[in-house]
């Protein structure tokens, strides 16, 4: 029955993949199939967003991890032979994708940031970053399905089409895995949205203490912006939530203004600010890589520069 298959473990990404998958399915001239295990009444919505078919998986038993679906999905795909299989880039889904691809003996383009269907060669050409973001590699799969994982927010969700319908098909099979989920600790969702912010003040390891975040907060405040950070600040020091780190494995942002303070500017970080309109850097090392990707840089100690700058902006705003 071939077709374009999509799978994701959260609603927002399902919508994004439906949008991307729909236009791809039209290009190829095939149907769009959504794999789903969630039994809430969202099917109608997904049809209106472009799904032709929902393939409904059996419900998870208590303590079963998502990876329990791998054999079932792989078997179904081996039978149905989808042309393309796009999977959301959440942590759990990345594991699923790699293991399904292994079972299907096919390639997988991880963290695909763009693709297009080459009509002449009838193949999907997929782009992804390599060397930490120094390069973009375009790959095509020589085997089917042509698989990719898509990072969140790569595509915007489409708009629903009232009255659009599809059918649902349930697949069954035993769900067995030796792995048990012992506990799920939910994280309190903090309301920071650095992706929407016009101004982002980003702190790096140049900051000596957690309290010094205040310097960044004050600067962000006078500019009406948000505070973001580099990966080590969020993941090693845990000073700021994980949603606020920018880069290859974090957020990609497009603000009007990015100010990096005490950020060295390694490529894995700066790929996340490529589309910032203006980039400013404050670093005491005049050879720091961040200056090469900044429009304006101040060479100096952030503990002197940032308070001065904040004060100067305040005065300017007053006058």
């Amino acid at each position: 029955m071939a077709g374009v298959w999509i799978l994701a473990d959260n609603h927002d990404q399902i919508l994004e993949l439906l949008a991307a998958g729909r236009s791809l399915a039209d290009d190829i001239g095939m149907g769009l199939h959504l794999l789903l295990w969630d039994r809430e009444e969202k099917s109608g919505e997904y049809f209106s967003y472009g799904a032709d078919e929902i393939i409904l998986l059996p419900a998870l038993a208590d303590g079963q991890p998502l990876s329990v679906y791998i054999p079932l999905i792989a078997e179904e795909a081996a039978r149905e032979k989808p042309e393309v299989f796009l999977i959301g880039g959440s942590n759990r889904c990345k594991e699923l994708a790699a293991r399904i691809a292994t079972r299907l003996e096919t390639g997988l383009c991880s963290e695909c940031t763009a693709f297009h269907f080459n009509q002449d060669l009838k193949r999907l050409e997929m782009e992804r970053m390599i060397y930490g973001g120094v390069g973009v590699q375009t790959v095509a799969s020589t085997s089917k399905p042509q698989m990719a994982t898509i990072p969140p927010r790569t595509f915007s969700p489409g708009s629903p089409l009232e009255g659009r319908e599809g059918k649902t098909r349930e697949i069954t099979g035993a769900l067995e895995t030796p792995v048990r989920v012992l506990e799920k600790k939910a994280k309190s969702k903090e309301q920071v949205n650095i992706r929407e912010a016009k101004v982002v003040v980003c702190v790096g390891r140049g900051l000596e203490n957690e309290e010094d975040l205040q310097l960044a907060r004050e600067l962000a405040e006078v500019l009406g912006g948000e505070v973001a950070c580099t990966r080590p600040i969020a993941e090693e020091l845990h000073w700021l939530p994980e949603e606020t780190y920018i880069g290859l494995s974090g957020q990609v942002i497009k603000p009007h203004l990015y100010i990096g303070i005490g950020v060295s500017g390694q490529i894995q970080h700066t790929v996340g600010i490529r589309d910032a309109k203006t980039v400013i850097a404050i670093n005491r090392d005049e050879n720091a890589a961040i200056f090469e990707v900044a429009d304006y840089g101040i060479i100096g100690d952030l503990y002197e520069v940032v308070p001065q700058l904040t004060r100067a902006i305040k005065e300017k705003v007053k006058s």
Partner: peptide
């Protein structure tokens, strides 16, 4: 399973203007 069709450099064109800390630099900023 994959064929690499090409690898391109990503680049970021920036002004790269550096200034010293101090009142002049701040004013400019």
């Amino acid at each position: 399973y994959l064929e690499t069709l090409n690898v391109r450099a990503t680049s970021m064109e920036r002004t790269c203007e550096k200034m010293d800390a101090g009142s002049e630099g701040i004013a400019k900023m």
